[in-house]
Simulated scan of single mutants.
Amino acid sequence: MESVLQLADVSKSYSGKLALKQVSLTIKPGKIIGLLGSNGSGKSTLMKIATGLIQPASGTVKVGGVPVGIETRAVTSFMPDQPLSEPWMRVEDAIDFYRDFYADFDSAKADEMLAFMKLGKKDRVSSLSKGMSERLQLTLTLSRNAKLYLLDEPIGGVDPVARAKILDAIVNYYSEESSLMVSTHLVRDIERIFDEVVFLKEGEIVLHDEVENIRLAHGKSVDEMFKEVFGE
């Protein structure tokens, strides 16, 4: 089975400070992966490299066996930690913008997700709460029929009710032929959706394992393991 995402010996520095240090990682289809680490651990850098927004200093990155570039951007859907929509837009404008921009945008899926998220097409983006704005960003990201979904801190600063809704949407609407990676430091709230977790500490992978193995081998939840590794 071909990997969806493959990083080999990837390093990246900013102003002389190493953000990623020889990271190697292989992600298979049909998995929801937690990319877990404290702030500044390199999570966003890894995601931006995987999506082609920034280039690594060294190493190789492939999506579906193809080196990251224009071709892989067409099959990679990225939700950054900043909104994808503009404040002047209504929800329907944001949907139209994505439909025009991405050939793989699935309008029926978008309509279904808007209903699930309780978002109205006439709602103004500028009037949405933090939680509703996150729901919109997730709808835009998951409405594409991509191979690789990358969600950077999708529940940061969101209240528990919206958080549960967002997690349910991730599970319900991602395609099982694809892979979905979620970066977060809010491990306890989100670990229920993960098949695998990757612990990133100071730019290095210190653990990559299936959630079931962590529970069986260590007798711990992912959150307990996270606190042990990161001292939180």
Rank of each mutant, 00 (worst) to 15 (best):
P80I: 00
S107W: 14
G203S: 05
S179F: 14
D111Q: 15
F78C: 02
F105R: 00
V75M: 09
G219I: 02
M181F: 10
D159C: 04
V91I: 08
S3N: 11
H218E: 14
L114F: 02
T141S: 02
P160L: 00
L167Y: 01
S178H: 11
I70C: 06
D123H: 14
F226P: 01
S58N: 14
A217M: 14
D195G: 09
K121G: 02
D152N: 01
G203F: 02
A103F: 13
Q82G: 13
L167E: 08
K43S: 07
M117K: 01
S58E: 15
V161M: 01
K121S: 07
D223C: 10
Y149S: 00
S127M: 10
G156S: 09
L180I: 04
T76V: 10
D195Q: 07
I155W: 00
M113L: 09
V125R: 08
K201D: 13
I170H: 03
R73A: 12
Y174V: 08
E2H: 11
L207F: 08
S183G: 03
A162K: 04
V68L: 01
A8P: 08
E2V: 11
L136C: 01
G59S: 04
D9L: 10
K21H: 12
S126Q: 13
L18Q: 11
M79V: 05
H185A: 02
F101E: 01
A169H: 09
P80W: 00
L216K: 15
L7G: 03
Y14Q: 08
L136Y: 03
E177L: 12
E204D: 08
I95V: 10
Y14M: 08
